[in-house]
């Protein structure tokens, strides 16, 4: 695509701007900020990726993945502010997800060990885990707030923190995983997944595009399950003190 044709796509930004102004939605400023940010961020990523792909050095791959983990952690931890040590717990979860998914993909030679494969797949896995962690933490804190009586009941009958929180933990893990599983049930029926569409537009064979998409959605299942369960089991002990008392969740 030429830069001329790319600049013509700005028509798609003008339409919402005009509509927002006409209907007094007040979204002009946000739309402009979003447009500028996407141009700057994506172009920067594009140039960085081009540099990393050309260099084909594992150090750059490592630095890129580390940066992804840091940004995703900082983003997800906002939802778990009341949980002590939430930052390292999320970071550890994302690192494990990355190791397990890349371990299988590279270990079994499913994809070549090059930056072109490792970086985009890592981005999808880490990004998905980040969303899952946020979903989980949201659900978990609201489950605890609405079932505090039940948790105190089990503690007061001589149960351990793990026994007291078991139901809320399982509910939150399950609830945070449901969107991933549900979205896979209708995949391809309504809209084509972004990565697959991108490959097809880029000229790839549709069957090959489907094969890669399947690889991604299967890996995402593991990423989703691992993140919910890990963040769950790492975070619940921080809700109790050493006298097995439920601390206030903020």
């Amino acid at each position: 695509m030429t830069y001329t044709s790319l600049s013509l796509t700005l028509i798609f930004v003008l339409i919402p701007l005009l509509l927002s102004k006409t209907l007094k939605l007040g979204l002009e400023k946000d739309t402009l900020i979003a447009t500028i940010r996407s141009i700057v961020q994506l172009l920067a990523v594009g140039y960085i990726l081009k540099f990393v792909f050309d260099a084909q050095s594992y150090i750059y791959i490592f630095l890129m993945v580390t940066l992804m983990v840091i940004v995703a952690t900082l983003n997800a931890r906002k939802k778990g502010k009341g949980i002590t040590g939430i930052t390292w717990k999320i970071a550890l979860t994302l690192i494990v997800v990355e190791f397990v998914t890349q371990g299988v993909l590279l270990g079994f030679n499913i994809v070549p060990a090059t930056a072109q494969y490792i970086i985009p797949i890592s981005g999808m896995m880490i990004g998905n885990s980040m969303v899952l962690s946020v979903l989980f933490l949201n659900r978990f804190t609201s489950e605890i707030a609405s079932h505090q009586n039940e948790i105190e009941l089990i503690l007061s009958l001589g149960g351990t923190p793990k026994q007291a929180i078991h139901r809320q933990l399982m509910h939150a893990i399950k609830a945070s995983m449901i969107p991933t599983i549900e979205s896979q049930k209708t995949i391809g029926l309504v809209q084509l997944p972004g990565m697959m569409s991108g490959q097809i537009i880029g000229g790839a064979d549709p069957i090959q595009a489907v094969q890669f998409q399947l690889l991604i959605i299967f890996a995402l299942l593991t990423a989703a399950t691992l993140s919910s369960i890990m963040i769950g089991f790492l975070s619940y002990p921080a809700l109790f003190n050493e006298r097995m008392q439920l601390l206030e969740v903020k």
């Binding site: 105190e152 503690l155 007061s156 001589g158 149960g159 351990t160 097995m244 008392q245």
Partner: peptide, 12 residues
């Protein structure tokens, strides 16, 4: 703690 709560029970 768990032994204490079995020794001193509470009805909420």
């Amino acid at each position: 703690p768990t032994a204490l709560r079995r020794y001193v029970s509470m009805a909420l």
